[in-house]
Amino acid sequence: MVVRIGVEEEFHVIDVESGALTPRADAVLGRLPRHRGDFTQELPQSVVESNSGVHTLLDELYTDLSSARRRLDEAASSQGLAIMAAGAAPIARLGAVPATDDPRYRAMTEEYRRVADEQLICGAQVHVDVPDKDTAVRALCAINPWLPPLLALSASSPYWLGSDTGYASWRTMIWQRWPTSGPAGCFTGAEEYDAAVDELIVTGVISDPGMIYYDVRPSAHLQTLELRICDACPRVETVVLLSALFRALVVDACAPADAPPCDDRHEWLRTATWRAARSGLEGDLIDPATHRPEPAPHVVRSLLRRLRPTLEAYGDWELTQSLTEEALARGSAAHRLRRAAHDNDLLAAVDLFLAETRGENWNRRGRAGARRRTTRTRAEDVPAQARRR
C-alpha cells in the first residue's frame, strides 16, 4: 500500500502596521479561489486554513505547502495584512475577534462560551492513509507515546495576549480546555470507538464526530489517521519533518506484525504532553521507553532511530535526519521568538515569524522588513535530498 500524506495548516491574519491579530480572514479569502476548498474559514474570524493536496513524496508536499503560503501572502499583502503560522499570535486582544458567521460556529460559541471565545490559536494537522478504520483505531496505542516529541518540534506559542507565558506551546494549554482534547484512549476497534463517540454526542458534550479533538484520531470523513497535537509551524520545513515522522509512526503501528498488547497505562501521557508544551526542545521530555525525563534531543533522536527502517523504505531517511538535526540546532520556534523579542521587541518577534512563514530569512531590520512583501520560496532552501526525490 502506498501511504500518502495530506496537511491542513491554520494561519493567523495579522495587521502589518501593528503586528496584531485582526479579524479579517474574509478579506484574505475574498482574494482567493475557493471553489476547490483549498482555503477555508475557521472558528475565529482571524484564522484561515489551507488544505494541501495528497502526496507520496516529501518534496511534492513541500512544493504544495510553499505554494499555498505564497498565495495566501499575496492575497493578504494587497490589503496591508500578513499571514502567520504559529500556535498563537504574540499580539492579540480578547474580545476583538468574533466568531465566524457560520451555524456550526455560532452553536459552538453559544455552548462553550469562554472556551470558544479564547480559541485564538492555530495548529498543523497531518493526515496519513490507513488500510481501514479498525486498523487505525487499534494503532492509536502504539502512536500515542510518541506524540509529545512531535509537539516539542512544533512548539511556537510562548506568548499569549502580549505576555510571555513561560510555555513553549501555550496553544496546547488553551486547546486542552475542550472536553474531548488530549490523548486518545484504547479501543479494540472501530465499533468500540464509534460507540464511544456516539455516547459523547448523546450526552450533549459534543454535537458531531468532528468535535473529537484527540491528539490523534481517525478522521471523521477520510480514511486516514489525523495528527492534531502540533502547533502551526512558521517554517514549512518543520511541517514536512512532522509529516515524515508521523507517516512512519502510522505505517509501523498499522503493520500486521505481532505487536505487544497495550498495558492501558496512559495516565503518564498527559504529563508527557504538558512537559513538551512547557519546554519544547529546550528542556526535558518524557522518554516513552522509560517514562523518565531526558533531554529533548535524546528523545527526538530516539524516535528517529526507531523509525529509521520505515523512513529508509520510503526514501525519506536522509531528508528526515537532516531536517531533525537542523531543527535541534535551530531550537524550537518558541525559543527563536523569545530570542527575537529579547534582542529587540515583540514587534520584531512578530516580524521573525512573518518572514519564516513566507520562507524568508529574517533580516533583523525591524518594521521595514515586515512591510517588504517578497514571497518567493527559493529552491536552495530545500535540502538536496528533497530536490533529488
Rank of each mutant, 00 (worst) to 15 (best):
G315E: 11
E356T: 04
L304D: 07
T324L: 06
P295D: 13
L307I: 05
E326G: 10
L328P: 08
T324V: 15
L323W: 01
L352W: 01
Q321S: 13
D343R: 14
R336M: 13
D345N: 12
W317H: 13
L311R: 03
T320L: 01
A313E: 12
L347A: 09
L328S: 08
L307C: 04
A340N: 03
A296W: 08
L304A: 06
A348W: 14
E312P: 02
Y314H: 13
T324D: 01
T310S: 14
L319H: 08
D316W: 15
S302W: 05
L352Q: 08
S332L: 13
T320Q: 02
L346G: 01
T320H: 02
V299C: 14
L352Y: 00
A334T: 07
R330F: 03
E325N: 07
A355Q: 12
R306A: 04
E318N: 13
E325M: 03
E318Q: 13
L304S: 06
R306I: 03
A313K: 09
S302G: 15
Q321L: 10
N344A: 10
Q321F: 11
R330D: 14
H298K: 06
A349P: 01
E326Y: 04
R301S: 05
L304R: 06
L328T: 08
L328I: 05
R339A: 00
L307N: 06
A334V: 10
L328E: 11
T310L: 07
H342I: 05
L303I: 09
E325K: 03
P295S: 11
A313I: 05
T320D: 00
P295H: 10
L307F: 11
L352D: 06
T320W: 11
P309E: 02
G315Y: 11
V350E: 09
G331N: 08
E326D: 14
G331W: 15
A334P: 09
A334K: 06
P297L: 04
A296N: 03
E318P: 02
R301M: 09
V350G: 07
R336C: 09
R336Y: 06
R339E: 02
A340I: 11
R305H: 13
G331D: 12
